[in-house]
Design a protein around this nucleic acid. Structure first.
Lengths: 176, 176
DNA sequence: GTTAGTGCAAACCTTTTGCAGCTCT
DNA sequence: AGAGCTGCAAAAGGTTTGCACTAAC
């Protein structure tokens, strides 16, 4: 149970286990999702309305500095805030669909290999590592393909109605 | 010359090549370092005092959306701003020393392998990828080792002077 | 009993937006 | 000519800080 090992880590450092910290640790640990500070605050505030947003930030900073949670930004899908996860599992990459926001986790040997190579190549001591990948998930890829076809059909239809382009809107308007 | 290919890319999309954009592109391209928006603004402002900070942000956003520059955060060494680099070279990982701030770039096959595995494993289409690693570079590792020894000696000396700890300052104060 | 931790308000830093005027094509 | 771009000022979003009070050890 990661919460307990985190608590142990904190106690060893002489960090006090306050009511607020107990609650935040529990929420971070049991939540499957990747929480950002605001979301964590919302959840905590529901259970303890006295708990302040600032305490959330201070606790996250503490955990981050202690290497107990990792900070992600999931390719800034959804804004510039940070997301957090406990450092329970093996190292993994985060794969974010830029269309639907789904986040997948990828474990696999290239990550370990990368780590080992960097350490030996530079004589570097790795403390934190993070790999984030953005693009389209398989589901959104097919949706997009359909959309593109659709758009192409529309364009073709337009071309028949307006054979040589009526407005000055002939270039520009990138499909992205 | 990457600037020119970027300019071409922009022209194709019907994006205007203004005086400001020309300057910013040149600065991003020729600067070896990883610039953040503020630094880029400073450099640009030196050469063209009329250029506004907002234009820097708008240009970076444009280039980012067009896939012409990549956004990094270098493990937030130095703050929460973003850093930018042209997408010239092969994909690479950024290796940041958390003590001295030096940034190394790591090329190597695990990165390509990782990419291929993620694409095939999830049927995912990768548009952006980024790997950032934080820790201590070889130079700082040896400096730190020396510091630790030093601290240990100090502590030992203290222990002789105050055999059973005088103040309540006996634990806590993590060395980090 | 101490010192670390909390809440509150206010500041901070980075980035975005609304709008009027300018400029590239 | 006219849409796209810029500058300015102001706002927004996320996070940090100063300070007096509270609570964990």
């Amino acid at each position: 149970m990661p919460v307990d090992s985190i608590k142990g880590s904190l106690r060893e450092k002489g960090v006090r286990l306050t009511r607020q910290r107990e609650l935040l640790l529990e929420l971070i640990d049991k939540s499957g999702e990747h929480l950002d500070a605001e979301r964590l605050f919302q959840l905590a505030h529901e259970r303890d309305p006295r708990l302040n947003r600032v305490t959330v930030y201070r606790t996250l900073k503490l955990l981050k500095q202690g290497g107990l949670v990792d900070e992600l930004d999931l390719m800034h899908y959804g804004g510039d805030q940070h997301y957090y996860e406990t450092r329970m599992k093996q190292e993994h990459a985060h794969v974010i669909c830029l269309r639907c926001g789904k986040v997948e986790e990828f474990f696999g040997e290239p990550l370990q290999k990368l780590r080992r190579q960097i350490e030996s190549h530079f004589g570097f001591q790795i403390l934190l590592a993070r790999t984030e990948v953005g693009g389209y998930c398989s589901h959104c890829r097919s949706l997009r393909a359909r959309e593109m076809e659709q758009a192409a059909r529309e364009a073709a239809r337009q071309a028949i109605v307006e054979p040589n382009g009526v407005g000055p809107r002939s270039r520009s308007k990138r499909p992205a």
